[in-house]
Design a binder for these strands. Structure first.
Length: 529
RNA sequence: GGCGGCGUAGCUCAGUUGGUUAGAGCAUGCGGCUCAUAUCCGCAGUGUCGCAGGUUCGACUCCUGCCGCCGCCA
């Protein structure tokens, strides 16, 4: 099944509550997953997320709350899962790195890699930052041997550890990235990754002695050690599907078509370390690293310390479902940093959701009720209808780029844009169609025609066209705004099969629709100016 | 220090291989409609396209230098 596809978010390190930045990644991946289900079929897409629960930072976060590590991560993992569920993400797998199945899988990979010969043991002395959970060279440190990331002194530690050969695979990985066999996008991050691979790399220390850290997965061939948290977490992308399908089948099927969604802060781990980890285990590489930027909050980086983080569900409960989703997909260019603010979100809400999408739905359904008693007594337009307005509407909804030979060209275009991570462009295209529909109302003025009963057939055909237009928009909106899409389709009273039809092939004469409801009530600006 | 990116209307940004009066949305002003969530439609704008040179018949688009902001690597 070569067209199977595996989609992942990063495995979230759950030493703090999820924020809008984590939500952004999950939402982008979810929009992508939903679009890919449309292209390939739901049973050919798997979508995976989960929590990374080992390591010293977790152990200490648990300690701070007087909890055992596992009790702490039980709580945190559930919190992440519930927040993402509240955002209507559609994960097929929710992996926890403390799942017994995952731990067993990581041990299998360690054994396998060790047998293949790319793990070795040596004594190591180095300067270690507990916050980073990594060793530093003196050149990397600030004066006084201070960690540049945490601004605190590092410790000199001497111990034996297991290492994975990384540099051995450097040229191979570099070539795969250069040739786009492992495609990193947007391209600027590909260049950065190639840059990182240009110089010799130190091998990766993959163990921690239990004497220093016991909150981890035990190394099967030396029980005095646990694995380093990164090595453990990467395998979360693989362990659950491998358990369900069998490793060989998963590797032969979906895995080479994996789409990783990651933040730019973990590009290096995914471009430099993850590929050798796979290659050393004799496994193929994923297809894409889809790297996104950061979401800034009112100009400054979102962070717990600056106090500008909010629970993502706050936006869900305050503004309604899909609003946060719409905002981040419409406003942020994937790959670049984006600016998030509640003011901006309200602007978008009023301009795009209330005035355009909500109001068009409302006015069309109101007219159907008032003039037709709720029943569409006509069929929507076809290409060769005489009225210029009808033809224009038809062409816009059916013939993107003037290609009328493909009835679902519009659908394909939207899905393709999502496939290229052009979420914003896809939404702009849909909003352009809302514009076309509003202009159609102005040009045909059914509310004026309706004053004369003799015009009723024409009024009916105009409204049939508009209901059809709404139907097509609602359907294509589904990956971006699943709840709203469902609401509009319910108002239009169309079933799932009808919803997917190209323009002109959906609503039939005699179809009954429901009265309007305000989908997105306008938000009045606060008095303070 | 090395590599790379960015700087376009009040705001957020588009501008494909250089080609006619530089675009969109939001915000602003004026006009129109009234089915609709005071929504919708039309019109009007404003820009030394960071600065200075260069290549060219012609550059926002290519080259050089400078200023400012940023990312990655060291």
């Amino acid at each position: 099944m070569s067209d199977r596809i595996h989609i992942t978010t990063a495995i979230f390190y759950c030493n703090g509550a999820p924020h809008v930045g984590s939500a952004y990644e999950a939402l982008a991946a979810d929009v992508f997953a939903r679009a890919m289900r449309r292209r390939h079929g739901a049973d050919r897409v798997s979508f995976l997320s989960g929590t990374d629960e080992h390591g010293d930072k977790i152990r200490r976060a648990a300690l701070a709350e007087s909890l055992a590590p596992k009790a702490y991560t039980d709580k945190m993992s559930a919190l992440f899962r519930d927040v993402f569920a509240g955002l209507n993400t559609t994960f097929d797998y929710w992996v926890r790195t403390t799942d017994p199945g995952h731990e067993k899988f990581v041990q299998e990979m360690l054994t396998r890699t060790n047998q293949r010969g790319d793990i070795y043991f040596r004594d190591y002395e180095g300067l270690y930052c507990v916050d980073c959970e990594r060793f530093y060279t003196e050149k990397e440190l600030l004066p006084g041997n201070v960690c540049p990331a945490h601004n605190r002194p590092v410790e000199l530690i001497s111990e034996g550890n297991y290492f994975l050969r990384i540099d051995k695979y450097r040229e191979e990985v570099r070539e795969k990235i250069r040739s786009d066999e492992l495609c990193i996008r947007p391209e600027r991050y590909k260049n950065e990754a190639l840059n990182m691979l240009a110089e010799p790399l130190a091998d990766l220390c993959i163990s921690r002695p239990k004497t220093r850290l016991d909150w981890g997965i035990e190394i099967p061939f030396d029980t005095r050690y646990v694995t380093y948290v990164w090595y453990d977490a990467f395998w979360a992308y693989v362990s659950a599907p491998a358990a369900r399908l069998g490793l060989d089948e998963f590797m032969a099927g979906a895995w080479p078509h994996t789409e990783h969604f990651i933040g730019k802060d973990i590009l290096k781990t995914h471009a430099v370390y993850w590929p050798p980890i796979l290659l050393a285990a004799g496994l193929p590489l994923p297809r894409h690293l889809n790297v996104h930027g950061w979401l800034n909050f009112g100009g400054s980086r979102m962070s717990k310390s600056s106090g500008n983080v909010r629970d993502p569900l706050y936006y869900e409960t305050t503004f309604g479902p899909d609003v946060l989703r719409y905002f981040v997909m419409r406003e942020v260019v994937y790959g670049l940093d984006g600016d998030f603010s509640e003011e901006r979100l309200i602007e978008r809400y009023n301009a795009d959701l209330a005035n355009d999408l909500g109001n068009l739905t409302s006015r069309v359904l109101a007219m159907v009720q008032r003039y037709l008693g709720g029943v569409i007594s006509s069929a929507p337009a076809q290409e060769n209808l005489a009225a210029a307005e009808d033809k224009h509407l038809y062409q816009n909804f059916r013939g993107i780029s003037g290609d009328f030979s493909q009835p679902d060209a519009l659908q394909t275009t939207v899905v393709d844009l999502v496939g290229k991570l052009e979420f914003k462009t896809a939404l702009e295209l849909l909003w352009n169609l809302l514009d076309v529909a509003n202009k159609y109302v102005a040009a045909t003025a059914p509310f004026t025609l309706a004053k004369d009963p003799a015009n009723l057939p024409r009024v009916a055909s105009i409204l049939a066209n508009l209901v059809e237009a709404l139907r097509v928009i609602a359907d294509m909106l589904e990956p971006f705004m699943p709840v709203t899409s469902g609401k509009i389709l319910a108002l239009l009273n169309v079933d799932a099969a009808t919803a997917r039809q190209p323009f002109g092939a959906g609503i039939k004469s005699g179809h009954k629709v429901n009265p309007p409801v305000a989908l997105f009530p306008r938000i009045e600006k606060p008095k303070s100016a």
